[in-house]
Design a protein around this nucleic acid. Sequence first.
DNA 1: AGTGCCTACTTCCCAAAGGGAAGTATCGCG
DNA 2: CGCGATACTTCCCTTTGGGAAGTAGGCACT
Lengths: 142, 142
Amino acid sequence: MTTRTEETGPSGAAYNAFLAVCPSRMLLDRLANKWVVLVLCALGGDAEKAPDVPAAPTALRYSELARLLSGVSQKMLTQTLRSLERDGLLTRTVVPTVPVTVTYELTDLGLSLLGVVRRLREWAQSHMDDVLAHREKYDARA
Amino acid sequence: MTTRTEETGPSGAAYNAFLAVCPSRMLLDRLANKWVVLVLCALGGDAEKAPDVPAAPTALRYSELARLLSGVSQKMLTQTLRSLERDGLLTRTVVPTVPVTVTYELTDLGLSLLGVVRRLREWAQSHMDDVLAHREKYDARA
DNA sequence: AGTGCCTACTTCCCAAAGGGAAGTATCGCG
DNA sequence: CGCGATACTTCCCTTTGGGAAGTAGGCACT
């Protein structure tokens, strides 16, 4: 039974990520990504903060992002930032300083997604011990 | 297997997914994945439901999952289910029916993650139009 | 004038992951 | 004894991701 009353048109809420052909499936594939989550969290101010200080969104330079997201290659960082800019989740601003600097900042759309991905990262961190315990049991049994 | 060090602190919030070496980084990489999100949502009852019916978690068979997640290969489905089982997010139950059937069901841990990834899928679907609009503007400019 | 340095990319190359299709194992039935 | 059904598993090839090196462009120093 097909639950869509209308095709995946631009105005309806008929998008369904379970369908391979739906645009939201491709969007989900983009967003459900390690670097996307970390870039958004970094621009959300989640990195390098004191435990008691609530995270506040902040603009960051390319080099700052590269430093915060340890292990990211320049290629992937650029690629991730470009796709997020294209999708309207962040803005890219070139500042004509001495050596040119570029800053990235979340848009309102990006901020609304931040609320979601932030929880994903927090979940991973707060449930890490549970997961590790399960893995040990699983690996011991097998 | 032996990596439960005190440096990351099993009880504290010392895990930090921004660090490449932190276990939670690897966990985030696993969870921030198209198929993980869709499997969890499917087992959460989000697929093929009428719009007014609230989603309720449900056990699903392998073949049911394969049908709901259109486009998934058997290989990736099996791989995703195995890793989620290993991490304690779902249970795998072999039912010795005529041809053997296997059912998958979310654990409490999986249910707590469902609350997060469900919002990710919902975000992708509900903001699809915004994203598409931004893409058109971006592509027209470039 | 030229050399070097800084930031922010871009390109090249290779290894790893993902996808498609076909093969395997097990069981009961006719 | 072969058939069909379910749930994988394996093989092979394409795509993606990562590491390292190269590019652009402007200023500063000698």
